[in-house]
Amino acid sequence: MAIRRIIKYAVLIILALFFLTPIYVMLITSVKPLSEVSLSEMWSLPSAIDFSSYSEAFTQLAPNMMNSLYLVIPATLLSAILGAMNGYVLSKWRFKGSEVIFTMILFGMFIPYQSILIPLIQFLNSINLYNSLGGLIFTHVVYGLPITTLMFRNFYANIPESMIEAAKVDGASFVKIFRLIILPLSITGFVVVAIWQFTNIWNEFLFAVTITNNNTQPVMVALQNLSGSQIVQWNVQMAGALLAALPTLLVYIFLGKYFVRGLLAGSVKG
């Protein structure tokens, strides 16, 4: 039995090390001076810690980090609020055809976004939102609706029907129930949805790379561009990758529980 146990832990440890390798490589490479970054010395520890690649990556990425922030916060809030409204109706005020409508909304979550990209760009262009953060925020709100609706609907499904019924008997209106009963119970829901949307929008690439350029680019596009320029400075690139990943990593580290809940809530049936 003890041997079995040791084997199990050994397997777990080996796999855990494998999962951590990219982080190890990112960390050690990012603190190396350029002269020590070579194909043959990839795995060795730096002789001295050098943060210059961070300052370089930071100077290059900081404006884009700001863009990402300006993008993520409003897009997350708006899509969460709309999702909560939809989820409320679709879980507590079902009507004939509401399931069909819900399924139709849900479908929007699975489509390859390439299939709406050409019209989207034409549309944003015609309302002067192409190449602007506003356009990108709008895009993320619209295409974030299905997932936030799904999450809130699943979340509200757990609120007992009897509470709503009791309120109705007391003469509370649709809006009043939402405000006084549903919203106060939604805080966890909002945290879960917000974390999920924050992570997704921060990490998103296809919309970002097609709708924005230069001054309006979010950080992931800037990171990708970093690798396309001149000599590939692996230390700067790794520092950049870490910086770009930091916000979502922090969210994961501190709020991992909610992140996982979002992940489960987003898997259609959960």
Binding site: F58, T59, A62, P63, M65, M66, L69, I73, P247
Partner: peptide, 15 residues
Amino acid sequence: MVVISLLVACGSDSE
């Protein structure tokens, strides 16, 4: 975190 990242980003902007 939001506040910190805002501060950090502003600092870098001027830099």
